[in-house]
Design a protein around this nucleic acid. Structure first.
Lengths: 217, 217
DNA sequence: TCTAGGATACTCTATATAGAGTCCCCGATG
DNA sequence: CATCGGGGACTCTATATAGAGTATCCTAGA
């Protein structure tokens, strides 16, 4: 088996850091933080040490020394192995070349949109719009700072990507909200009707089942 | 504490289904599948039953009956409680109104882009482009089918959203690839140089550290 | 000089999760 | 009539994960 388990991208981050030079896990965390890679990779200590252990078990990194200063906890310095270099390369290549299915929370929320009444949905979408605008504004400010610091674009492509996604999301929300306001969203009348019942929230049922999936003779 | 744990969106999906009518977990899974909600919410049996248990412990759903036909495994039918209705509403409202930070795999990959040589990166990006195009093509075909089945747009907004994100990703990848080809990507010379060393892969170190984060006098 | 607060460098534990495995039924096939 | 395959409806288990907790050192203020 060439690829043991490629679950947590934090493991990839560790490999990248150790490919630069040997470090102890806490130092890996620092490095990722000062480079703002913790914006793109979920980083917390609980997972970090677990992930390093896994890498050790898979033979991708190995302990190179354990220092101790005073009576502070030991620091174990790890180095990447040859197998680690290979795995780093293959994993990263795969991540770049093949798009993976993601499950964004908002996509899930949209799936169940009919479960809230349409008027409330409208104001919730408005709130999201405002928050997204705020987020994009501060992201823009940050981008200017980074540019002024003369940090080449190569080192913040990931931030650009995140911003592009958020922008698309904002446009989508605005359009959906507009269609809702204009009454041009197909299914709206059903939606209003379902929530018009006086007997409290009747969130669904949607009027389609297996029979809509394929035609029968 | 009004909100116990709002981790897994599958729990939300279960609440939505049970708000429609009482079901046993397997039936919930079926329902989600026939409505293609398993495209927006990660669904697998291992998690499903665990999630239902959690909902029971939190008092959001309760067992209403357990049937048995023949010697097949028992089917426990669950119904949503009043607290469950409240939680369903609040959770969904939050998901719609406040954008959550996500960690897409490709964003992580972009973070570490300099770890592969630039020429290889170019062809990996090409491969991604092709795969994204294929994905979007089949998504388009599916969308037409759904439209022909007269399924109102309200019931597939989430798919529209996913497509919008993928389109943005495709554009982003195309542009990045083009900048790479044109040599207009800032940092490219450093990138080439680092990977030009004959002593194998020297993936990093990037030429910035804490000193770039803030100015000193 | 005493102390409050913040790094440093982990460690612990309860819970979540994925994926495989299990057991039974039913219809079709040879 | 035996058996084969494909659902249905879970159950089991090893691993991953988040978040809080711990213990030491250092610095700067009162």
């Amino acid at each position: 088996m060439p690829a043991g388990k490629r679950a947590n991208p934090l493991a990839l981050a560790v490999l990248v850091c150790l490919a630069e030079r040997p470090m102890h896990p806490y130092e890996v965390a620092q490095t990722l933080r000062t480079r703002h890679k913790d914006d793109s990779v979920r980083l917390n200590y609980g997972s970090l040490y677990a992930v390093v252990d896994t890498l050790v078990r898979r033979g991708l990194v190995e302990a190179s020394e354990t220092e101790r200063s005073g009576r502070l906890p030991e620091r174990t310095v790890y180095r990447i192995t040859d197998a680690g270099h290979v795995e780093l390369h293959d994993w990263l290549a795969e991540l770049i070349a093949v798009p993976a299915k993601e499950y964004p929370a908002f996509e899930a929320a949209l799936s169940f949109l009919p479960a809230v009444p349409p008027d409330e949905a409208a104001s919730l979408l408005d709130e999201r719009t405002q928050r997204l605008e705020a987020e994009l504004a501060s992201a823009g400010a940050l981008r200017e700072l980074v540019e002024k610091a003369r940090l080449p674009r190569l080192f913040w492509v990931e931030a650009e990507f995140a911003i592009a996604l958020r922008r698309t999301e904002l446009e989508f929300v605005r359009r959906l909200r507009a269609d809702l306001a204009a009454g041009t969203l197909e299914g709206l009348s059903w939606w209003r009707q379902v929530h018009g019942q006086p007997d409290g929230p009747v969130p669904l049922p949607p009027p389609w089942g297996p029979e809509h999936d394929e035609e029968r003779p």
